[in-house]
Design a binder for these strands. Structure first.
Lengths: 133, 133
DNA sequence: TAATTACCCACTAGATAGGTAGGTAATATA
DNA sequence: TATATTACCTACCTATCTAGTGGGTAATTA
């Protein structure tokens, strides 16, 4: 399995924020209840989304989170690459991967590259707006 | 990351057997040396390939392994689904997965299904013959 | 000032990956 | 028949990762 709970939860939070967006901040407590996800666990994921400016957080009463873009401007691939670290199907295609010595005449590398391209292309062709009710 | 060493090694063994096929059995000791993979680890993978009749094994001197089909009749997807257990990108699409209660109106399930379809379709469109030198 | 909310840090149980060690069973050859 | 060779089997190990929990602090509003 390729996509962990972290990435799937991030996606569900973003969709939830999009579907309940009325301009106000939405506290994560509400999202956690609606989505039936541990609030504590979400609190570890959200700061990463804030740092990447996918959402903005506001402290205090009346605070919470809110999207920074229109839903159609969030490609799913962007959210997953951020939260999962990478979507590469094999280790040698991961971002910081050190070149393996077999790279030059590796029989399988071209196939992995093409698979990687297809996965990313598809996930970048879908947006949050496509997944809303 | 989605494809573990187990699946990648299985693939490299199959390609090695295909490239060195002269009708005789090829001992795994040779393959392990050529591919620079732990023989002990390969010995844990091969019985699974034998059980699925992807290769046949022969004991004793002059023994080893040999492909049971022509290289163009091995879709990569078949080998990987066997050795990896599953290629599903998310847990809820795995073979023995119990239905999650959100399935009915899950926003993300259709996307995961389509991704799953694309991954399997591509990997089934490539064969061992395509990966040989 | 009190309540609320984001955010930070440390810890943990369980699962999995990627092996290693030490054998036994089957087969060919001398 | 003896020996070497090879597949194949069982048990074990260690490091890493996942999906959390617990206990706070900082910022903001009412």
């Amino acid at each position: 399995m390729m996509i962990s709970s972290r990435g799937r939860y991030a996606l569900r939070v973003m969709i939830d924020l999009a579907e309940h967006d009325d301009g106000a901040y939405i506290p994560m407590k509400e999202v956690a209840q609606r989505q039936d996800i541990s609030l504590k666990y979400l609190e570890k994921i959200l700061p990463q989304l804030v740092a990447a400016k996918l959402v903005e957080g506001q402290h205090g009463k009346g605070g919470g989170y809110r999207l920074t873009r229109a839903p159609e401007n969030y490609p799913i691939g962007e959210i997953l690459r951020l939260t999962e670290g990478d979507l590469a199907p094999v280790a040698c295609l991961e971002c910081g991967a050190e070149a393996c010595k077999r790279t030059a005449d590796c029989r399988t590398l071209p196939m992995w590259s093409e698979l990687n391209r297809r996965i990313n292309d598809y996930l970048d062709s879908v947006t949050i707006a496509d997944l809303m009710k």
